[in-house]
Design a protein around this nucleic acid. Structure first.
Lengths: 233, 233
DNA sequence: AAGTGGTCTAGACCACCTG
DNA sequence: AGGTGGTCTAGACCACTTT
């Protein structure tokens, strides 16, 4: 009756992590086998396995059959970025969100879009421009292209009230995407939309989205001056 | 003898994912219980549990005791960003990496740094400036501050050859960090270092690092014009 | 009170890798 | 050839949440 709790996989995981952080097991060092750790912690091997599997997912340890488990020598740090809708980003800042459609037209896909999305140039696409505001201040400008063949419903969809990002999220909820971030200088149009000086440095996110290998949409979001995207790891 | 393979947790995971993608189970819909799925797939409940746990980690489904498992209504997409060293980023581009220390001095922490890192202003810190090159072209400028108390060895470390990021990665391998990304206009000094026009739009990453709740370092990396950070989800 | 997911166990077999 | 992690099983008990 001395131990109030049983050893769970989280206990094993945290203790192993502690030993790595405090260099009981240094970088590159070989850990005991699962069976040995199970004996030490007084639990089943499956419990140790789950604990170590989580640490391996985090990149803290490397596991190989026969070789055993080692502390990762030079861990590659990974940050998780939440790709949220403009509405969410604005409301997280306790501001009032507003959306406005700027333009909407069907057109043939230009060449650069074809290579971006892996689309045959000349394919009919829906091109939207829109603005997103927080408390009346420009938040970001959206330049959106949608592959009509992949999402036929978009031809009839009304984007006057609902942002295309939110519409697509409901229509094609589980898609894959390439995303890239860069800095760009405001041209005349962006300066106008975002109420900044031409040439101002703006943070920009571009995203190409696929669903089951079919290109769905390409979006370029250009944020107001001073915008910061944050994350943690 | 009809089935060549056994049903593994990956089979279950993929089949459930397929049913969600094809809207067999629509957004918000309730899935069968683990026990029911185990019967259907002809495997143990633990196998189903692991499959569903992975999908829950991805944010595809929401699980609650008693309520059961539901398809996430509005999934929050997450991108994984690899925070790599400059050397890695450059060599990934098949370019030759070069590093140069620009300045190095001990000083009292300025106020803005104190609030950034959660450090008492006036604490002695090591301030480094350095450049990283790819094939001789400016890659990024590094403005680095290290809390000497947290990493005593840095006072004697030679940063003439080894970049502080790599040195710290070996010294404090398992740290936590806040990271933020923004766009900034080149000032005179940055324009000089990065060989661009003053006012050019530059991509910038800032990172504050802790180890076991103690502030370790703050780094501001300013990249050459046109730099793109990429990811995928 | 009852239903559902969360976790653990003890044992087993397999797949992969290294010597 | 043998050691190590990867996975599955069948059963059990627990924890949380809703009714």
């Amino acid at each position: 009756m001395q131990q109030p709790k049983k050893t769970g996989f989280q206990d094993v995981r945290d203790e192993v992590m502690r030993r790595i952080e405090t260099r009981v097991w240094d970088q590159g060092a070989l850990l005991p086998t699962e069976a040995e750790l199970a004996t030490e912690f007084g639990c089943a091997r499956a419990t140790v396995n789950r604990a170590l599997r989580e640490l391996a997912d985090r990149g803290v340890i490397d596991r190989k059959r026969k070789s055993g488990t080692r502390v990762t020598a030079l861990p590659v740090k990974q940050a998780k970025l939440e790709i949220a809708t403009a509405r969410r980003l604005v409301e997280e800042r306790n501001a009032t969100y507003r959306y406005a459609l700027v333009s909407r037209r069907m057109q043939a896909a230009p060449g650069w879009l074809g290579s971006q999305m892996g689309l045959t140039p000349g394919t009919e696409v829906l091109h939207l421009e829109a603005m997103h505001y927080g408390d009346g201040q420009p938040f970001h400008f959206e330049d959106r292209w949608i592959n009509i063949a992949a999402v036929p419903g978009c031809a009839e969809a009304d984007f006057a009230l609902k942002p295309p990002g939110e519409w697509l999220l409901a229509e094609v909820p589980f898609s894959n995407a390439d995303v890239s971030f860069t800095a760009t200088a405001a041209d005349a149009a962006l300066a106008d939309y975002l109420a900044c000086a031409p040439g101002a440095a703006l943070f920009q996110m571009e995203r190409s989205t696929w669903f089951q290998d079919a290109p769905v949409t390409f979006a370029r979001m250009t944020f107001h001056p001073g915008y910061r995207m944050r994350s943690r790891y």
